[in-house]
Amino acid sequence: MNLFRLGGDLLHVFSIFVLTLKIKTSKNVAGISLRTQQLYLLVFCTRYLDLLFTNPFRSGLTMYNTVFKILFIASSAYIVYLMRKKYKQTYSVKDDTFRVEFLIVPACLAGTLFHYRNTFFEIVWAFSIYMESVAIIPQLYLLQKTGEVENLTSHYIACLGGYRALYLLNWVWRFFTEPRYRHWIEWIAGTIQTALYADFFYYYFLNKTKGQKLKLP
């Protein structure tokens, strides 16, 4: 455990909190991609299959991981519920149209071909890493289509990008401090995932310095 990772995890939780706050305060889910949220739910459910066989009391880190894993699955399931049931009428159904098959199928292929070990859990785990790296795309697509988003929605995406950036720093840190740290799958997928936010960040900061709502050209 290092400060970059701890900061990344906390920022990840905070981003989900910001999103829930946006939905609860505005009582609408306009501008939020249900497709991205469902992909995240899929990512967490496939990534954290080990919850089924890991003893959470094994160590302090196991307990820490277990709490966060349950939190991520539960919170993303809750957001999907809010979007599909409670605030269904406000959902941007006409604009949230990115074809997720174009993301899921390649992630399945990549997981099947490139993994650490040839076991079911390892293949599913690798799939979840590849899936997460591109899961934000429907959200960015929706953002581009609508052109303007509410502040809290843009903060949510910014927090997610920040969490990714901290995880990259965490890997750099671990690379130099742990001699046997060679996690190439995380490196590749994580770099792609973080890079996807670059364009968004450019406009986010441009609009923040002007003190305006996020508007895309």
């Binding site: 990840h12 990534r47 080990d50 991981n65 966060f68 650490y116 785990w125 995880y167 995380e186």
Partner: peptide, 10 residues
Amino acid sequence: MLYETLHDEL
């Protein structure tokens, strides 16, 4: 090797 040794992150 334990599953957790390889996957100790979130």
